[in-house]
């Protein structure tokens, strides 16, 4: 009986320690923005790493998502005789939900996992120790640039996703299924209001913070708790980070949606 209490207590303390460490990590990540070294070059480099390299993946995902929405949306709306609303349906779904969420998930899978692996490998090769011993703040040098770059990239990629998706819905709806182009596009124009776009932007910023925070944290602490600094730790950290980020993004999606609606 006592053993169960002990185990539960230990688990609780472990989670508390984890949260505490993550909190401190967040503070150092933000603090690192204002500290040397200079950020401009490294942020631009990270924007390339996170953003430009995700371009194709996002475009692809957006196109197919838009197309599926067009397909599904048409047949659902057709039951009520409201095919003309397809444009609104596709646009609103993308801008409010699917754009931010799917972009974030794709970027997590692509750039987020790469972040974990890059930093994790640095950790096991003592490169982060080397930075510290050169009196260089590893947060300022490694983590903060990625944070700033994510804040820039994710909203932009989300916008790009939305546009491509709406176009994908157009191709299916208008070219394939015969919805009138005028109805589709005016539907988009009439039903999308600033509040929807605002929701999408807020979500993408929140998701960006979550992704970079979790992924860089996992990379940074690779092997530290186990005391074992080998390649298995890196792959484990990568998997854990992607799963945790994805789940957190979905949970955060609900929270933000319920707050903003």
């Amino acid at each position: 009986m006592i053993r169960w209490v002990q185990l539960l207590g230990a688990l609780f303390l472990e989670q508390l320690a984890f949260l505490g460490r993550m909190g401190l990590f967040f503070i150092y990540m933000i603090r690192g923005i204002l500290r040397p070294p200079g950020k401009f070059r490294s942020v631009v480099k990270q924007i390339h790493f996170i953003g430009t390299k995700s371009f194709f993946v996002i475009g692809f995902t957006a196109a197919f998502t838009g197309m599926v929405l067009g397909l599904q949306g048409y047949y659902t709306l057709a039951k009520f005789g409201s095919e003309g609303l397809l444009g609104s349906g596709v646009a609103l779904s993308l801008i409010r939900e699917l754009g931010p969420v799917l972009s974030a998930l794709m970027v997590t899978g692509r750039a987020g996992s790469a972040m974990v692996a890059e930093i994790g490998i640095m950790r096991i090769d003592e490169q982060i120790d080397a930075l510290e011993c050169m009196a260089i703040d590893p947060y300022a040098y490694l983590i903060s640039p990625k944070f700033l770059a994510s804040l820039v990239c994710l909203p932009l990629l989300t916008a790009y996703f939305d546009v491509v998706g709406i176009f994908g819905g157009y191709v299916i709806g208008v070219d394939l299924l015969g919805v009138s182009p005028g109805a589709y596009l005016s539907g988009v124009e009439k039903s999308v209001v600033w509040k929807d776009v605002y929701m999408g932007i807020v979500k993408s910023i929140c998701f960006a913070v979550l992704m970079v925070w979790i992924c860089t944290y996992k990379g940074f602490y690779t092997g530290v708790d186990e005391g074992n600094f080998g390649p298995e730790q890196v792959s484990r950290a990568t998997t854990d980070a992607v799963v945790l980020s994805s789940v957190s993004i979905l949970a955060m999606d609900y929270v933000v949606t319920s707050i903003l609606l």
């Binding site: 490998i121 640095m122 090769d125 003592e126 490169q127 120790d129 080397a130 011993c133």
Partner: peptide
């Protein structure tokens, strides 16, 4: 400090 593997930034 020279670390065991050199710890060069890749």
């Amino acid at each position: 400090v020279l670390f065991q593997s050199g710890a060069l930034f890749n």
